[in-house]
C-alpha cells in the first residue's frame, strides 16, 4: 500500500499559482527525495501535504484516507511527522520543553530514546532553543517530530547550513528511520547526499513534476541533474 498518494495537486498563495497539478506517491518503507531548484515549489508541496497551505484542487491521500481538507493537527495526529524548513525550533523553550509540545501518539519514541539517538541533545536539554547551533537545532527538529511516533516523516532541507560531518550524521538517522518502518519524504538541495540514501527521486520545476523514478537512475544521469536541479547541480560538482 502507498503511504502517500498525491493526485493533480494545485496550490496557490493568494493569486499566485504555485503548484500546477503535481502527482506522485510514497510507498511503505520508502525514502523518496523531492528535488528542484530554489522556488520550484518543494516547500509548498510539503505545506499542502501537511494542510498548512491547503491545495485548491487535486487530492492528497495519506494512509488510504483523503486528507486534502484536513487541518494540520489532524494530519499530524494520523501519524505524519513534519520537520519544517529552517527548523522552526521554539526559541524561548528549552530542549526538553520543545520535546513536550507535540501530541504524543503511542509508540516506541520517548524523550529518553530520542536522547539516546542524539546524545548532544541530552547534554543541552536545559538550554533554550535559541542557544543551539544549527546542527543541534536540526537534531531537535527531528527529535521533536519523533515524539509524535510518526509512520511517515516529511523533512524540508535538513542539511541546510550544516557542516558535512553533521549532514552525514543527520542522513544516517534518516536511513535509520526507514529501518524502523518509517516512510520518508525528503526535500533536499544537497542532491548527492539525498539520492545516495533515497529509493526514488522526484524532481519539481516551476510547480510541475518533471521526473519521477529510481534514485539510482536519476543519480546516473548527470545531464539531467544539471538541467533540472539548477543550483543544486553546482553542489553536485563541488561535492
Amino acid at each position: 500500500m502507498n503511504i502517500l498518494e498525491v493526485d493533480s495537486l494545485q496550490t496557490y498563495y493568494g493569486k499566485s499559482h504555485i503548484l500546477h497539478g503535481i502527482s506522485f506517491h510514497v510507498g511503505e518503507g520508502e525514502i523518496v527525495t523531492l528535488l528542484g531548484r530554489n522556488g520550484a515549489g518543494k516547500t509548498t508541496t510539503l505545506r499542502s501535504l501537511m494542510g498548512l497551505t491547503r491545495a485548491r484542487e487535486g487530492s492528497v491521500r495519506l494512509f488510504g484516507a483523503d486528507t486534502t481538507a484536513w487541518p494540520p493537527y489532524r494530519i499530524a495526529a494520523a501519524g505524519v511527522g513534519y520537520v519544517p524548513e529552517g527548523r522552526r525550533i521554539f526559541a524561548n523553550l528549552t530542549v526538553e520543553e520543545n520535546l513536550k509540545v507535540p501530541l504524543e501518539r503511542p509508540g516506541p519514541w520517548t524523550p529518553d530514546r530520542v536522547y539516546e539517538l542524539f546524545p548532544r541533545l541530552r547534554e543541552r536539554r536545559f538550554n533554550k532553543g535559541r542557544q543551539l547551533s544549527g546542527g543541534e537545532q536540526e537534531m531537535l527538529a527531528i527529535a521533536r517530530s519523533l515524539m509524535l511516533n510518526p509512520r511517515f516523516l516529511l523533512l524540508d532541507e535538513p542539511s541546510q547550513g550544516l557542516a558535512p560531518m553533521i549532514v552525514q550524521e543527520v542522513f544516517n538517522v534518516i536511513v535509520g528511520m526507514r529501518a524502523q518502518g518509517i516512510s520518508v519524504l525528503l526535500v533536499e538541495q544537497n542532491v548527492r547526499a539525498a539520492v545516495a540514501i533515497a529509493d526514488r527521486a522526484c524532481v519539481l520545476d516551476d510547480g510541475r513534476m518533471v521526473f519521477e523514478g529510481a534514485a539510482a537512475e536519476f543519480a546516473a544521469d548527470e545531464a539531467r541533474v544539471r538541467a533540472l536541479a539548477g543550483a543544486s547541480a553546482e553542489r553536485w560538482e563541488a561535492a
Binding site: Y73, A76, F90, A91, L93, L103
Partner: peptide, 20 residues
C-alpha cells in the same frame, strides 16, 4: 508549554498535532 510555544510559532505547534 504549548501556549508558550504557540505564542512564538502557532503554525508549527499545529503541525505537531496540537489543535490550536
Amino acid at each position: 508549554l504549548r501556549i508558550r510555544a504557540g505564542s512564538g510559532d502557532l503554525e508549527t505547534v499545529s503541525a505537531l498535532g496540537v489543535n490550536v
